[in-house]
Design a binder for these strands. Structure first.
Lengths: 124, 124
DNA sequence: ATAACTGTGCTAATTGTAATAGCACAGTTG
DNA sequence: CAACTGTGCTATTACAATTAGCACAGTTAT
């Protein structure tokens, strides 16, 4: 697993882990019933305490994105529709864009960014 | 001044204050040399300790958005180009949109949001 | 059965930072 | 002088993130 953690960020480590696992699920890289690395494995890989990993996994389980079985491991949930995941991410984007507008950003500037990010992509 | 503070938010109060003052400047509601409320006035208005207000103002002064004069008060800086302010807000929007994309959000969804936020506005 | 894994559930200690409180000092204005 | 302004401290409180360590329970393979 390729995780990029910023230990000096204001956003907690467990949130960063949640985000990145959610991204892997939302983008389809991780599919239903795929097994995640074990708590202890991730803990040593990322040099992060097992409790911090556990916190992230527990949250993800509460959100229905993963499920854990004692003795076996943690896996990607079946029912989780990607739409739902993207939805919450879009909500944050909406906030950021609104903030940008309130600070004087022009619509054209925002559109440039969107096009830049999605450039080379296919439309649905 | 109409401030909306979320005391339970993860983003610190002084950051919320910075954001909202920055928004007032970036949107042009506050103009160069306009006087801001005094530290003590804002402190009592918002029911926030003066040190917290001071923290916000000091940060804003470091960013060149306002300037303070002992005995007189705090004022909006002259040189601050709105573009610069919008720029930083746009950078955050870029991050949020990228994150949304990585979580599976479609370009069309993002565009809908942008149009929704800017609906009824004039194009530059 | 045992070893080597898995997740679970605690409690405790540490750390960093936001926020508050209070005081003193200096500049401005009337 | 009085009543404001911002500035600069120090100390304290409060909370959340993180780490540490231990014990317990389920799974799997030898």
């Amino acid at each position: 697993m390729n995780f990029f953690l910023d230990f000096h960020s204001r956003t907690p480590i467990y949130e960063q882990i949640k985000e990145q696992i959610t991204a892997l699920v939302g983008s389809g890289i991780l599919k239903a019933d795929d097994q995640l690395p074990s708590l202890r494995q991730l803990s040593s890989e990322l040099s992060v305490n097992i409790n911090t990993i556990k916190r992230a996994f527990s949250d993800l389980e509460s959100q229905g994105i993963i499920y854990s079985v004692a003795g076996k491991g943690s896996f990607v949930s079946k029912g989780t529709k990607r739409d739902v995941i993207a939805e919450s991410a879009l909500e944050e984007a909406r906030l950021a864009i609104s903030k940008a507008k309130s600070m004087g950003a022009e619509k054209s500037d925002v559109l440039k960014i969107v096009n830049n990010i999605y450039e080379g992509d296919e439309e649905t």
